[in-house]
Amino acid sequence: MLARFLDPAVLATISGLDLVAKTVVEGFIAGLHRSPDFGFSQEFAEYRAYTPGDDLRYVDWNVFARTERCYLKRYRGETNTALTVLLDASASMGFGSHRVNKLDYARYLAASLFYLATRQRDAAGLIVFDDEVRDVVAPSSRHGQLSRLLHALERAAAGRRTDYARPFLHLLDHLRRRGIVVVISDFYAPAAEIVRTMAPVRFRGSELVLFHVLDPEELRPEFAQPVLLVDAETGQRMEVAPEYARREYRSRIEAHVAELCGRATEAGMDYFLIETARPLDAALREYLSVREGRM
């Protein structure tokens, strides 16, 4: 029953990103046996012997009382992780063949991630960009951060062209600690250029996750007759025959996805392709399952 409500078209009827995020996250968490590891966690992981310099706050005094030895209690995600979402708000993200366009879907996705991170007391931040950095919410785990993030998401609107260089430069300038950087975009740029632009983030020790959000029509366009297509970002016009869209374009988009996936994986990034017609919780569940398995 819940899955039916998490259909993107249904999510679009829910007013308020906070409610959307809560609905999504609570839904899929309820279906998991164990909470996902997404940064800090209150769940015990292991004990480690104390070494000078360790923070005394994490010493398990109960163990010390019984054994007179100092042990530190380790939890999952203990590495002070911060979640930074880079949301592509270029014009192409405004495209949608059904009620939920890519930007809406990306907002739901980002909101869900923020909710999840906040629920685990991770710091979360947001950078909205197109060819420039449009909005920035610095990562923080303070109270009220979720509201700030969701407001920023609400403000995000489809802008102009995409330029990955500027938001990543901005990110690199402000990246102070290791964390998880999530990029939500339709990635209309050469795969090599995308990976080359984002690779420095990975070099800083942060994990990089690419959410490739595409509309079903972008993946499998079906034109009954020749159409005059207009590029949402450049305004370029081109007549496209149904046969071309059915055959060559599909092979090209599949090749683009495959290349991006391959190059990202090679560069140590996580890559997930998400169709906007797909239920959001299902997509998140798959992503978290994969991450959990890898860890």
């Binding site: 495209f95 972008e218 020749p226 159409v227 005059l228 007549e239």
Partner: peptide, 16 residues
């Protein structure tokens, strides 16, 4: 030439 109405598409990058 087909006088079809223009139709917006996300990107023509992959259209040759």
């Amino acid at each position: 030439r087909r006088q079809a109405p223009p139709r917006e598409f996300a990107s023509l990058m992959l259209f040759e």
